[in-house]
Write a protein that binds this DNA or RNA. Structure first.
Lengths: 252, 252
DNA sequence: TGAAAATTTGTCCATTTTTCACAGCTGTTT
DNA sequence: AAACAGCTGTGAAAAATGGACAAATTTTCA
């Protein structure tokens, strides 16, 4: 019982990089924080992780990514995003050529993806770095101007760049969604890129945590009839489900 | 004042592995704990250490305990490389448009560069990530296939990509150098890219730590008459200096 | 099997550490 | 000299931690 839990914690921490005690507590609701604390202590003694204020971080992670700041960025809706990423990971077959955007949900997806022969195009540095850890995944990074806020690239040459590149699946995420304005984001460059991606891909999977619903950002890049699958969390509002069905969008 | 203290703290922590705030306070009796705390915070943001309850621990130390390939590579001849990077940083004026390669020396250079209005092209993810921390530097990342060994990109489209991009200075580094075979590297793609860069740049600065001298790798990408400045460390052999002069290469 | 022993776990709480907000201080620029 | 930005110190509030002990569970062994 204890052994199992400790093994699970170790696995979890290596997957996520770092974990707050709070998140850990959510993953193991049937035991007390004190117990989890003691587990972390044991794992630390084994050199498997480093305890930091509020939780712990993976030693593996520290060893691999030497120049990334370890400051805990208070990420929002982490659990929902991970849940969505896990669902999405299951949809992607080995051998698929796919496009992944630069968002945090995409990063979680990159972490959740098994080490199989995928071909991934992306414009996200973090996504690329994460995928570089996997031996069988081949990664292709879109070049261009570096956007510092989210470490992604954008380029007016994207269409040239993609002329001879093909992908079956595009996995995107949006900063905002309403049925009327569709999926929108903050910058025009981003929107242009997403539009291009949507045109190139055979199917478009949209990852959307429910906190984005009802929001609008300046640039719409896709509407419901542009996408094939919508992956979301359990808080997705019932009244939208009918609309999805009408547009032949699969909801997961 | 602050800079000095932070540098000292970094050194101290790398020496001791970990440090409690109490010990740290003893080493710096003239400043308050709060200030030291803020210093640790700044160092954490730079990825130099990890704050743990009661103090901080060295990232170097954590990495040393591993046998991950990356880590090993970054660890060789660190001091020489930093020395070279510092020299190079001084050569680059504000407003310059430059190309930086993906090597570890380039990464050190990126760290050493002041936060001024530079325009940097690079194919190294670590270099790009590092430069993203600086507000005034604009970064342009070359796209292409991700090479996992050193987190760089390579692309047959590079020449197209660069048609409308211009840089005065190319800062390169080589894996090997002999006077006969010139500067060489391990892969053809890398060599092709470097050749292209050398043609596009008005001046080529080569960073070469002396451990590379006398070695040969399969693909030569430049010879002495292709470069303008050679930045190296103090162990550079005397007998080569004459040859450099002959080819009008400035030695620093 | 059953009871004692050992291990694991939960709760309470004192202690330590951290963060926050604000005010004072420093040195620099105009 | 005044205005300014950046650094530093202070004290109180908040958060996290670890210890002690009792309760629950598992293991051991007769």
């Amino acid at each position: 019982m204890k052994r199992n839990r400790i093994a699970e914690i170790e696995e979890l921490i290596n997957k996520r990089g770092k974990l707050s005690l709070k998140k850990l507590s959510e993953s193991f609701p049937h035991v007390s924080q004190m117990t989890l604390r003691r587990d972390l202590l044991a794992l630390e003694k084994d050199g498997k992780l480093i305890r930091v204020r509020g939780g712990a971080m993976s030693v593996q992670d520290v060893q691999k990514a030497s120049n990334v700041p370890y400051t805990k960025k208070t990420a929002t809706h982490t659990n929902e995003k991970i849940q969505i990423a896990q669902k999405t990971a299951r949809l992607i077959d080995e051998g698929t050529s796919l496009y992944l955007d630069a968002g945090t949900t995409a990063l979680y997806l990159a972490k959740e993806m098994p080490d199989l022969r995928y071909n991934v195009f992306t414009n996200g540095l973090a996504v690329a770095t994460e995928l570089a850890k996997k031996n069988n995944v081949s990664v292709n990074l879109l070049g261009g101007v570096l956007i510092k806020e989210n470490l992604s690239t954008a380029s007016s040459l994207a269409s040239i760049y993609f002329t001879d590149s093909n992908f079956e699946v595009a996995v995107l995420s949006a900063a905002a969604f309403t049925p009327e304005s569709g999926f929108s984001c903050s910058t025009q460059m981003e929107a242009d890129l997403c539009k291009l991606i949507c045109r190139k891909a055979k199917s478009v999977y949209m990852m959307l945590d429910s906190s984005k619903i009802g929001k609008i950002k300046p640039y719409t890049f896709a509407r419901l009839d542009d996408i094939n699958v919508l992956i979301t969390d359990s808080a997705f509002p019932e009244e939208l489900k009918a609309q999805l069905k009408e547009q032949n969008v699969v909801l997961l």
